[in-house]
């Protein structure tokens, strides 16, 4: 009986701690990570898969020539549009690897590495931050010296002064939200 009460108290305490821990001790909330779509689920991927399927359906005799021409034209247009949008995005990002089909994960990892490095070495608190390349060491710069994009001021957490990564919505040291 006593043992059971102790077990019940332990279970209850463990459950309550598990649930309330983020509120009581908001130490390290895992920052929401942006996870890109699988390449197959992007507009480009969907259009490419559709083009492949059209070829296959014609080969199996499902599509008449007329329908094939129509669908092929339509989805080629969609695919080209997706490719153009992708290039435009990459150009906007100032990516030297345009056309290489650089995935979002890689951009993220690279940006993250840059942010950590510069934060660890030279970025003073309150330094401006580039949307692509992270916090910059030059306190009075207006444009990024790496990619020439306009810098965002105050790339540091208002709460604890830690440097913020690009597109951070929460400080990764203290968990405070970042005002957009």
């Amino acid at each position: 009986m006593t043992l059971e009460v102790i077990a019940a108290v332990l279970v209850g305490a463990a459950a309550v701690w598990l649930v309330l821990q983020p509120l009581i001790a908001p130490g390290r909330p895992s920052a929401p990570v942006f996870e890109p779509l699988d390449p197959e689920e992007t507009p480009k991927g969907v259009a490419l898969a559709a083009l492949k399927e059209i070829e296959f359906d014609r080969e199996t005799g499902k599509l008449s020539d007329e329908d094939y021409a129509y669908l092929k034209g339509k989805y080629t247009g969609v695919a080209l549009e997706a490719l153009r949008a992708e290039s435009a995005e990459q150009a906007a990002r100032g990516d030297s690897a345009a056309g290489g089909g650089l995935g979002d994960v890689e951009v993220m990892i690279a940006a993250r590495v840059r942010a950590l490095r510069s934060a660890a070495t030279s970025a003073p608190p309150g330094a401006p931050s580039c949307p692509t390349c992270g916090p910059r060491p030059e306190a009075d710069a207006v444009f990024c010296s790496t990619c020439a994009r306009r810098l965002r001021q105050g790339g540091a957490c208002a709460g604890c002064g830690a440097a913020l990564g690009p597109a951070s919505r929460y400080c990764e040291r203290c968990g405070a939200g970042v005002a957009a």
């Binding site: 951009v107 940006a111 390349c133």
Partner: peptide, 10 residues
């Protein structure tokens, strides 16, 4: 490839 290029780019 992208990872390497991006670091060079930085």
């Amino acid at each position: 490839g992208g990872y390497g290029v991006a670091l060079v780019g930085a």
